Simulated scan of single mutants.
Amino acid sequence: MGNMEQAAAEAVSSDQYLTFQVLGERYAVNILDIKEIIEVTQMTRVPMALAAVRGVMNLRGNVAPVIDLAQRFHDCRTTLDRRSVILVVQLEIEGEWQVMGMLAEEVSEIVEIAPDQFQSAPEFGAGIRQSFIRNMAQLDGRFIVLLNLDQVLSVSELSVHQDDSLRAAGTGGG
């Protein structure tokens, strides 16, 4: 194997992940999925949006929704402080690129996790919906949940209006 092939093989076998905190738990996303990390900025609440949609922000002239991960995972709002951040990601949704923000308590670190360190999500006991978990990895004696951004930031789920979700649950007006 030549040096170039070996370097390519090593690059594929060891990916970098950004770890961050949500309600004291450590989560991760591939560093390539993160476009930027910004301080929490002014957000405008969207009427009738689900509680997980904390609001929208102006990102260089573009409107970007901000999803509160604590609300999305545990039905509990993130308490904003000086360490709170918005992780800006870009997802391809129905053939178009959509920029979205994810509100987290704080960024932890960038870690390298080799593919053989990953394990599939347990059937239960992970603390969040199984569909939100792509994989889990053990690092420094603690588990890190690698998020499945397509599910966590599912536009079809997040774009439901609050009154629609209440009606679907059988608790709304009418």
Results as ranks from 00 to 15, higher is better:
residue 32 L to C: 11
residue 32 L to E: 14
residue 33 D to M: 11
residue 33 D to L: 04
residue 34 I to L: 06
residue 35 K to M: 08
residue 36 E to K: 13
residue 36 E to S: 13
residue 36 E to H: 09
residue 37 I to E: 00
residue 38 I to N: 02
residue 39 E to A: 10
residue 40 V to Q: 02
residue 40 V to L: 06
residue 41 T to W: 06
residue 43 M to R: 07
residue 43 M to W: 08
residue 44 T to S: 07
residue 49 A to N: 02
residue 50 L to T: 02
residue 51 A to V: 14
residue 51 A to F: 14
residue 51 A to Q: 15
residue 53 V to E: 04
residue 53 V to S: 03
residue 53 V to H: 08
residue 54 R to D: 11
residue 54 R to Y: 12
residue 57 M to L: 10
residue 58 N to L: 07
residue 59 L to K: 06
residue 60 R to E: 00
residue 60 R to D: 05
residue 60 R to W: 01
residue 60 R to A: 01
residue 61 G to F: 06
residue 61 G to I: 06
residue 62 N to E: 14
residue 62 N to W: 09
residue 62 N to G: 09
residue 62 N to H: 12
residue 62 N to D: 13
residue 63 V to H: 12
residue 63 V to K: 09
residue 63 V to F: 15
residue 63 V to M: 14
residue 63 V to D: 11
residue 65 P to G: 00
residue 66 V to I: 10
residue 67 I to K: 03
residue 67 I to N: 02
residue 69 L to S: 06
residue 69 L to W: 05
residue 69 L to I: 03
residue 70 A to I: 04
residue 70 A to E: 08
residue 72 R to S: 14
residue 72 R to H: 13
residue 73 F to K: 08
residue 74 H to T: 14
residue 74 H to D: 15
residue 76 C to T: 08
residue 80 L to Q: 06
residue 80 L to S: 03
residue 82 R to E: 04
residue 82 R to Q: 07
residue 83 R to E: 13
residue 85 V to H: 06
residue 85 V to S: 10
residue 89 V to M: 03
residue 90 Q to D: 10
residue 91 L to W: 01
residue 91 L to H: 00
residue 91 L to N: 04
residue 93 I to E: 15
residue 93 I to Y: 15
residue 94 E to I: 04
residue 94 E to K: 08
residue 94 E to V: 03
residue 94 E to D: 13
residue 95 G to I: 00
residue 96 E to W: 07
residue 97 W to K: 09
residue 98 Q to S: 11
residue 98 Q to A: 10
residue 98 Q to L: 11
residue 99 V to K: 10
residue 99 V to Y: 09
residue 100 M to A: 11
residue 101 G to C: 05
residue 101 G to P: 09
residue 102 M to E: 10
residue 102 M to N: 07
residue 103 L to S: 05
residue 103 L to Y: 01
residue 104 A to V: 14
residue 105 E to F: 08
residue 105 E to C: 02
residue 106 E to Q: 15
residue 106 E to M: 15
residue 106 E to C: 15
residue 106 E to R: 15
residue 107 V to Q: 01
residue 108 S to L: 11
residue 108 S to G: 04
residue 109 E to Q: 06
residue 110 I to Y: 09
residue 110 I to D: 03
residue 110 I to L: 10
residue 111 V to H: 12
residue 112 E to R: 04
residue 112 E to I: 05
residue 114 A to T: 08
residue 115 P to L: 08
residue 116 D to W: 06
residue 116 D to A: 00
residue 117 Q to T: 02
residue 117 Q to K: 12
residue 117 Q to M: 11
residue 118 F to M: 04
residue 118 F to K: 00
residue 119 Q to R: 14
residue 119 Q to W: 11
residue 119 Q to M: 09
residue 120 S to W: 11
residue 120 S to R: 10
residue 121 A to F: 08
residue 121 A to R: 05
residue 121 A to N: 03
residue 123 E to P: 00
residue 124 F to K: 06
residue 124 F to W: 08
residue 124 F to N: 10
residue 126 A to S: 15
residue 126 A to L: 14
residue 127 G to W: 05
residue 127 G to S: 07
residue 127 G to P: 00
residue 127 G to I: 01
residue 130 Q to R: 12
residue 130 Q to G: 04
residue 131 S to W: 01
residue 131 S to R: 12
residue 133 I to D: 03
residue 133 I to Q: 08
residue 134 R to S: 08
residue 135 N to D: 02
residue 135 N to C: 03
residue 136 M to A: 00
residue 136 M to P: 00
residue 137 A to R: 15
residue 138 Q to M: 07
residue 138 Q to S: 02
